[in-house]
Simulated scan of single mutants.
Amino acid sequence: MTIGSAVSAASVRDDARADRSGTRAISPVIGVVLLLAVTICLVAVVTAGIATWSIDTPAPTAAFELQADGDDSTITLEHIAGDSVTVDQLSLTVRIDNTELEKQPPIPFVGAEGFRGTPDGPFNAQADSTWQTGERTTITLAGNNTPSLKSGDTVTVTLGFDGQLLTEVETTAT
């Protein structure tokens, strides 16, 4: 081997070492950055999951019976079985022949637009706010609430509890 070729071979080795040592220094940095990115993504997913998770109070389990009288324009609901229901957390939607009443009853109430007088039973704001099995409530539609209730109409009442469907009952008005 000559001196020129020995120097040339040594410089090639030094150049190769320089290239490898530069690459080796980047590898751990890339690994740390990737690990940090994965950790941040994982934390974001877990945080989003926890933020959307809520512990809702389950709706009570209860059964109701519906009666409607077209002559008196009254709708009566009776709590016939199941858990007691807190009236303050109820929402009520009344449909007559699949058309919602123009003015829905606020629950509980004493005198509301679209309704005559005050409701009987637990829908009355002056009554106990807990609706027990065996109790019934009656609301009377006013003449200015449309559609009007007549004998033979199909009446559907949907009860919601704290934003969840509690029940939907249907009857034909007598």
Rank of each mutant, 00 (worst) to 15 (best):
I50R: 15
S27Y: 10
Q126L: 14
I75L: 13
K103Q: 08
W131T: 07
K103N: 04
W131M: 01
T158N: 02
G121I: 08
Q89E: 02
D83G: 05
V155Y: 06
A16M: 11
L92H: 00
A44C: 07
T146R: 10
A62D: 04
L159F: 11
N144Y: 11
G117M: 09
A142S: 07
T146P: 00
T61Y: 05
G163P: 04
T167L: 01
H79F: 13
V155Q: 06
G22T: 12
V12R: 09
T93D: 00
Q132V: 04
G160A: 11
L141E: 03
S73M: 12
V155C: 10
G111N: 08
T138V: 14
A25P: 03
I96E: 03
G121K: 07
T57P: 05
R17Q: 15
E100I: 02
R136I: 04
G31D: 10
V43W: 02
L77N: 00
E113V: 10
D83Q: 11
F64E: 03
T118F: 12
A25D: 13
T154M: 04
T86F: 15
S129N: 14
P60G: 05
V38L: 12
T138E: 13
P147K: 02
A6S: 11
T174N: 05
A81W: 10
P108K: 02
N144S: 12
L159D: 03
D162C: 06
E170Y: 04
T23H: 13
W53P: 01
E113M: 13
K150R: 05
V43Q: 06
S148N: 14
L36T: 10
R24I: 07
D97R: 03
V12D: 12
F109V: 05
D19Q: 14
T47D: 10
